[in-house]
Simulated scan of single mutants.
Amino acid sequence: MNSLKRDPGLRLPIWDYPIDQCDDISRAYIKVEPYQQILTNYPFSGPEKHYHQFQSSWFKLFPSWLEYSSSKDAAFCLSCYLFTKEANWTPWINHVGKNPNLPHNIAEQACKDLMSEAQHIEKIIKKQTSKQIVKNRLRLKTSIDSIRWLAFQACAFRGHDERPKSKNRGNFLEMIKILASYNKSVDEVVLENAIGNVKYTLPMIQKEILHILSRKVRDVIREEIGDAKFCIIVDEARNDSKRKQMTLVLRFVIKMVFYVKDFLTLFTSQILWR
């Protein structure tokens, strides 16, 4: 950035720089502000009958973009240099104005947007993505909590009619509705308020969450058993749909040890059966 030319008449066109460097170069020029060279006398130019010269007082009228090049004896616009292909301009009336669609006004706004990181597309996307992640996690947590409670209470999940207009959509969906009624943040992200199809309420999702919970329970049981001895109890029965179901129960002993400081002794408590 230190090698960038300050004199607008000696600069490379912004479009000649590598595309991945243009934004950084533009920010650098905006930060150092327009090149406003104040001379005692500016050269005269123009036809003999209409000599004119640049005036340093013009810098006060347009401090944010007006530049002067002594090498070219010409006025330049910093904003237009950065965001249009015509940085050198004449006459005045064609360059500035109140029309927001003028190239100069569009370039001025582009400079402001470039220096405002909050408006950059990557910042906006990141912000929206972060908010969506929070909402997705809250939606998923609501489904997990509902499934845990229903599984612990041995309640059925599905309902006969789970459509939105149904009076009873089943224990799982009704549980989510109850949780949403007590929390506005939950209500904004679950069921019909969810964005798209990311509701985490499909039977397939319910089974997947149940599978994860059951796997964690089995892991805890294995840790509790450790190297101890255990026995297996197997039972088989038919459910209401005449399908055979086999139950596998592990029976093992846990020895709980307590340390007592007063007597500096070690003893074993009563045996717990599972």
Rank of each mutant, 00 (worst) to 15 (best):
L4V: 08
L4C: 12
K5A: 10
D7R: 06
D7A: 03
D7S: 07
D7P: 08
P8G: 01
P8N: 09
G9H: 07
G9I: 01
G9C: 02
L10C: 11
R11L: 02
R11I: 07
L12F: 10
L12Q: 14
L12I: 09
P13T: 11
P13I: 09
P13G: 03
I14Y: 05
W15Y: 07
W15G: 03
D16C: 06
Y17D: 12
Y17P: 08
P18K: 12
I19P: 01
I19A: 14
I19Y: 12
I19C: 08
D20E: 15
D20A: 11
D20I: 08
C22S: 08
D23F: 09
D23R: 15
D24W: 05
D24A: 13
D24Q: 09
D24T: 12
I25K: 02
I25V: 08
I25T: 06
I25R: 11
S26T: 04
S26C: 15
R27Q: 10
R27F: 07
R27K: 15
R27Y: 03
A28R: 09
A28Q: 14
A28C: 14
Y29D: 06
Y29V: 05
Y29L: 03
Y29A: 02
K31T: 14
K31V: 15
V32N: 02
V32H: 13
V32E: 14
E33L: 15
E33A: 15
E33R: 15
P34Q: 05
P34F: 13
P34T: 13
Q36H: 11
Q36K: 10
Q36L: 05
Q37Y: 12
Q37H: 12
I38D: 11
L39F: 10
T40A: 00
T40M: 02
Y42P: 07
P43Y: 00
F44M: 07
F44R: 04
F44K: 06
F44G: 00
F44A: 05
S45W: 10
S45F: 07
G46L: 03
G46P: 05
G46A: 06
P47C: 05
P47Q: 02
P47F: 00
E48F: 00
E48D: 09
E48I: 11
E48Y: 01
K49T: 12
K49N: 13
Y51R: 09
Y51G: 00
H52L: 01
Q53H: 10
Q53K: 14
Q55T: 01
S56H: 14
S57R: 10
W58I: 04
W58G: 02
W58Q: 01
W58T: 03
F59D: 08
K60D: 15
K60N: 15
L61I: 13
L61N: 10
F62C: 03
F62Y: 05
P63Q: 14
P63H: 05
P63F: 07
S64F: 08
W65H: 14
W65S: 13
L66S: 00
L66K: 02
Y68M: 09
Y68R: 08
S69Y: 05
S69A: 06
S69C: 10
S70M: 05
S70Y: 01
S71W: 06
S71I: 04
S71R: 04
S71F: 06
K72H: 11
K72E: 12
K72T: 03
